[in-house]
Design a protein around this nucleic acid. Structure first.
Length: 378
RNA sequence: GGACGGGUGGGUGAGUGGCUAAAACCAGCAGACUGUAAAUCUGCCGCUCCUUGCGGGCUACGGAGGUUCGAAUCCUCCCCCGUCCA
C-alpha cells in the first residue's frame, strides 16, 4: 500500500471528508491524532489505542533523537516495529520545541542548537538533520523543521521566522528528495509547514512560499499558542483558502473539544493535541456536557459514569466517585482510565464530525454540541 | 519514686526574645493546561469585619501565673507523652 489522499466530499462550510492512505493503513479524515511524543501515548497501551479506533498517532523527532536515539530505532527496524504500532505515525520535526524549549535553545539560519532537557548536552538540529532522523525513524509522515514562535509576536519577528521557515523547508525538501530512494520499502511523506504568526498577509505569503516546494501535504503551524480562538480560525482560513484541494491539510497542535468542528469547517483534515491526554492526567475529563474536574469534592459520592452519553469502556464500568478516589490517591490507574476516556471523547467527536459532513449538517452538529458543552456538567 | 527528652495550626515538623497568624512538606479546597522539559504547575488554606487592602479586630504554639516595651521562644508551678533507672 502506498500513499494517497482523496477528498470524497466537501460540504457548504468547506469541511472535507476524505481518506488518507498510508503504508500503515487507511485513515478517514478529518482525523484527530493522539500525541505520543516519546513513542507512547502516555498512559495508553497500543491495545487501548486500537480499541479506541486510533489509526494514526503523532510522535516526536527531538525526543526520540535524544532518547533512545534514531540510530537505535532504525537499527531495530524503524519506529513502527520498535514500538509495535501497526497504524500510521506522523512525526513532528522538533519545530515545536523551538517554541516550548525556548530557554534551552539558540536559533541561527543553520538550525537550532538545543541544550538537552535530559542531560544538558548540546545538539544542533538542522532541517536536514530533522529530515534524516525522521527517515531513520521511518514515520509515515515527516514534518519539516520550522520556527514556531510565541503569540503575540512583533511583526519583524514573525517575518524573520517566516523567512527562516521557508529557507529550512527548502533545505528539508531537497534533503528528502535527494535521499528518498534510500528509504526503500519504507515510504514516507514529507509535509511543509506554514508560519506567519497572527498576521494575515504573512500567513498568505508563507503559504505561497511553502506551496512552491510542492509537498504532498501542508500544515498550519504556530497557532493555538495562546491567541484567542477566533484569531486561530482567522489565520487558519487565510491559509486554507490558498492550499490545493487535493492535498491533506494539517492544523498543528489543536485543539479544545469544542473547537475541533470549527477547524474542520475551515477545511482542515488533520489535527493533533496533547490536551486529551495531558488534561486527563491532571484530572480534567471531557464530556458531552463540558469539562468535569474530577478531583472536585462534589464528585466524591457521584455514582454516575464520567459521561452518561459516552460508550467508552471506562464509562461502561467505572463511576465518577471511583475516578475521584484514584486521583486523590495518586494511583496510576487514574491516568490510564482518564486518558482512555478523553481520547475516546476526542475520537468520537471526530467520528461525529465525519458523519455530519456526510449528512451535510456539520454546522448544526457543531452548534448543538457546543451548546451542550458550554452548559457545563450536571 | 527518680533522671533525661518532649508537648507548635487537620497531620508530620521548623522556629529558642521583636522581621511570626508562625518555615517546609503532606492533607484539604479551587484553578490552569492546545505540534508534551507536564502523573505538572498556580492560588487559597485560624476566626471575623469592611471601603477586599502587602486593611482592621480577635484568638493561637499543653495549662496557669510571671519577667519584659515586646514571649511559641526566658522563669515558676501544674498536666500530659516517651525513654531509661529504681
Amino acid at each position: 500500500m502506498s500513499f494517497s489522499f482523496a477528498v470524497t466530499k466537501t460540504d457548504e462550510t468547506g469541511a472535507r471528508r476524505g481518506t488518507l492512505t498510508t503504508p500503515h493503513g487507511k485513515i478517514e479524515t478529518p482525523v484527530f491524532m493522539p500525541v505520543g511524543t516519546a513513542a507512547t501515548v502516555k498512559a495508553l497501551t497500543h491495545e487501548a489505542l486500537e480499541e479506541l479506533g486510533a489509526r494514526i498517532i503523532l510522535s516526536n523527532t527531538y525526543h526520540l533523537y535524544l532518547r533512545p536515539g534514531h540510530a537505535l530505532i532504525g537499527k531495530l527496524g524503524g519506529l513502527h516495529q520498535f514500538m509495535s504500532w501497526p497504524g500510521a505515525i506522523l512525526t513532528d520535526s522538533g519545530g515545536y520545541q523551538v517554541f516550548s524549549l525556548s530557554a534551552l535553545r539558540k536559533i541561527t539560519d543553520e538550525g537550532v542548537t538545543f541544550r538537552s532537557h535530559l542531560d544538558g548536552s548540546q545538539h544542533l538540529l538542522t532541517p536536514e538533520k530533522a529530515a534524516e532522523i525522521q527517515m531513520a525513524l521511518g514515520s509515515d509522515i515527516a514534518m519539516v523543521l520550522d520556527e514556531c514562535i510565541e503569540t503575540p509576536a512583533p511583526r519583524e519577528k514573525a517575518e524573520a521566522a517566516l523567512v527562516r521557515t521557508t529557507l529550512w523547508a527548502k533545505r528539508a525538501r531537497e534533503y528528502f528528495l535527494a535521499n528518498e530512494a534510500s528509504l526503500g520499502e519504507m515510504k514516507q511523506w514529507q509535509f511543509g509547514i506554514v508560519q506567519g504568526a497572527t498576521f494575515g498577509d504573512l500567513r498568505r505569503e508563507s503559504a505561497r512560499q511553502i506551496l512552491q516546494l510542492d509537498f504532498p501535504g501542508y500544515a498550519v503551524g504556530g497557532l493555538a499558542v495562546g491567541e484567542p480562538h477566533a484569531l486561530t480560525c482567522e489565520m487558519t482560513s487565510e491559509v486554507t483558502t490558498l492550499l490545493p484541494n487535493d492535498r491533506p491539510r494539517y492544523l498543528m497542535g489543536v485543539g479544545r473539544p469544542e473547537q475541533l468542528a470549527d477547524y474542520v469547517a475551515l477545511g482542515i483534515d488533520m489535527m493533533d493535541c496533547v490536551l486529551p491526554t495531558r488534561a486527563a492526567r491532571h484530572a480534567c475529563l471531557y464530556t458531552s456536557e463540558g469539562r468535569v474536574l474530577i478531583k472536585n469534592a462534589r464528585y466524591a459520592e457521584d455514582q454516575r459514569p464520567i459521561d452518561s452519553r459516552c460508550v467508552c469502556s471506562v464509562c461502561k464500568r467505572y463511576t465518577r466517585a471511583y475516578l475521584r478516589h484514584l486521583f486523590a490517591a495518586g494511583e496510576i490507574t487514574a491516568a490510564i482510565l482518564a486518558s482512555h476516556h478523553n481520547v475516546h471523547f476526542y475520537l468520537d467527536i471526530m467520528r461525529q464530525i465525519r458523519e455530519a459532513i456526510e449528512f451535510g449538517n456539520l454546522a448544526k452538529f457543531s452548534v448543538e454540541m457546543q451548546a451542550r458543552y458550554a452548559a457545563g456538567p450536571a
